[in-house]
Design a protein around this nucleic acid. Structure first.
Lengths: 185, 185
DNA sequence: TATGATAGTGTAAATATAACACTAAGTCAA
DNA sequence: TTGACTTAGTGTTATATTTACACTATCATA
């Protein structure tokens, strides 16, 4: 009867924090772990799930681009990654949750270092710029982007190069404080 | 046994939206209505209330400065207004909720027109500046503030003056779109 | 060795922000 | 009536930030 895809989720246990619960459900249903997790919003309209009253404390997680493997849990449907522009129909108000997460993330790009959560341990400035461009949905001037991101003094050269493809190799960078998301400016 | 002050709040009803519930509890316990309401964060640590598991979807409300009268509900303790610097000891993690609301509000002053929610229908620029200074906890240059706030084109002169006290009367302003909070810049 | 692909770099103009001090209009008291 | 006090109101200049913009470098491959 309800034939839509859902976001990963489940019920909070009696003796469990909300953050832990989100991490647990995510890992149980997708195998994904080692993520940046942030509470997004709590959705509680009375009939958002027509079967019963459900109040959802929604979280979003960001994961480094080299950690994308998924494994469906035994009791879960197939899992998969979907681009924002290729989302299947979602159950309940899950599309609203996605929209809000996207909005939150776009806003945070401007005033925090949250984008680094998507990066592998070493990355090129072009890759980092692509993260910004994809999330913001607009092109960014390459020189201005580099000037800006380097001025933050949050990333540094690794000294290595990535040689890949028929073109000039790119310098690799690393995040100086990989485990924190800072407010900038 | 628990002798601390609490924030207004209560349980969500079976057929009630979270926003409506927050508004209802606020009015029931304080008589306050006609507020700007925004969901803040959901607090769910297992023993934050030592009596039983309570997950709190916290909201904050802003109210115009000429609407500050309070009436205690029959079943509620005495209610009162408290400055941030004169807060009594609060129950559970309610101090954390206050701190987060203050933080959120400070941040929003910079990129939204949320401050107008505190203003009466007509107000002076000095009053508006005081709102910013109190919330941000720092002095603002008067000329720069006026230049900035007027450039937003979100307020306009009413044409009236407020004559009050032994000094030059102040021009009165009104908010052009009083029922919306805009993102600026 | 020419082609095609991505990496990498600097400068100048425009805009935004920050610093800063005096005059205006009222009340009140001497 | 005038001098003292109080808050309202106003512009300019320096600094910092943001934007616009085009060419060279290095590699693989044909």
């Amino acid at each position: 009867m309800y034939n839509y895809e859902s976001l990963p989720g489940g019920f909070v246990r009696e003796d469990e924090d909300l953050d832990s619960s989100a991490l647990r459900e995510l890992e149980e249903e997708t195998g994904v772990h080692d993520v940046y997790l942030e509470q997004l919003y709590t959705f509680g309209k009375p009939r958002r799930d027509p079967r019963e009253r459900v109040i959802t404390v929604a979280y979003y997680a960001l994961i480094a681009s080299d950690q994308l493997s998924l494994c469906a849990a035994t009791d879960a449907e197939a899992v998969g990654w979907f681009g924002l522009d290729e989302m299947p129909d979602l159950a309940f108000d899950h599309d609203e949750i996605i929209a809000m997460a996207h909005e939150r993330l776009s806003a945070k790009l401007d005033y925090s270092t949250i984008a680094f959560q998507f990066m592998a341990e070493a990355f090129t400035l072009s890759e980092l710029q692509a993260v910004y461009e994809i999330i913001l949905g607009e092109a960014i001037d390459k020189r201005n982007f580099r000037k800006w991101i380097l001025a933050l003094e949050q990333i540094e050269e690794t000294g290595e190069l990535r040689r890949e493809g028929p073109h000039r190799p790119a310098m690799l960078y690393r995040v100086i404080h990989p485990d924190q998301v800072d407010i900038i400016k």
